[in-house]
């Protein structure tokens, strides 16, 4: 296994005065897909936001691609090559599909050190988006918005994709398409950090999992052994 691309050690995070994360540690290696699993309110989303610098946080070690990102503002972290696909998609609803993608493409600036995505390659992956380039983001269905949010993150040429509950509020059949798409991205070499409640999604994509409960790390290991823990142990780490 190669050296970790993302190293997180002793991460604490707050929402206002409320402390959400307690001494969380995890890592993502190059080319690997890692799941953060846990019930709602466990702190999965906060972990990802803390990573992006969107909430107040503190860590003993917070290193991405060899760069200490603990004190960097959000935009600098993103520029190092992290593609963030947030909970609730957060598409710019007043902008067209094409404009949404343009925002993430910074002209003149170096990309995010990851593989560059041409518009053609992007539209090969998301044929739906190619057909609706002039449509306003707000006029798209939830599943289409999810795809746009993913495509938007790819435009910035990331090395690591950070996905926050892509299956929440989406029809099961769309979830299946998404599993295939994310799987293909992983196969192309992208590293993936996925927060999910849907176990089937994690299982289809991820190599390893971290289970979080009430802001703390509860369990970590290969995806397969979590599977066994679920099947054979009534006191599974999830309860």
């Amino acid at each position: 296994m190669s050296a970790p691309m993302l190293e997180v050690e002793g991460l604490d995070a707050w929402y206002g005065a409320a402390r959400i994360l307690f001494d969380l540690s995890f890592e993502v290696r190059r080319g690997e897909a890692v799941a953060l699993i846990g019930p709602n309110g466990a702190g999965k989303s906060t972990t990802l936001k803390a990573l992006m610098g969107l909430v107040r946080r503190r860590a003993r070690r917070l290193v991405f691609d060899g760069v200490d990102i603990a004190d960097l503002p959000t935009y600098r972290i993103a520029r190092l090559g992290i593609g963030y696909v947030p909970e609730d998609r957060r598409i710019f609803t007043d902008l067209t599909v094409a404009e949404n993608l343009d925002i993430a493409a910074r002209p003149g600036a170096a990309g995010g050190h990851g593989p560059a995505w041409s518009r053609e390659a992007l539209f090969d992956l998301f044929p739906n988006l190619a057909r609706m380039q002039d449509r306003r983001g707000g006029a798209m269905s939830g599943g289409e918005q999810q795809m746009l949010s993913l495509a938007r993150a790819l435009v910035s040429a990331p090395q690591l994709l950070v996905l926050d509950e892509p299956s929440e509020g989406v029809a099961p059949i769309i979830v299946e398409q998404m599993i295939d798409t994310i799987g293909a991205l992983k196969a192309s070499g992208l590293s993936i950090l996925l927060s999910e409640q849907n176990y089937a999604v994690c299982n289809s994509i991820c190599d390893r999992a971290y289970v979080i409960g009430q802001g703390e790390l509860r369990w970590s290991g290969p995806m397969a052994s979590l599977d066994e823990a679920r099947n054979h142990d009534s006191a599974s780490p999830l309860d």
């Binding site: 969107l54 959000t74 935009y75 947030p86 910074r106």
Partner: peptide, 13 residues
């Protein structure tokens, strides 16, 4: 619409 998201896409907001 969403300044946080703009920053998360690498824009110096």
């Amino acid at each position: 619409q969403d300044r946080e998201m703009v920053a998360a896409l690498g824009i110096n907001e």
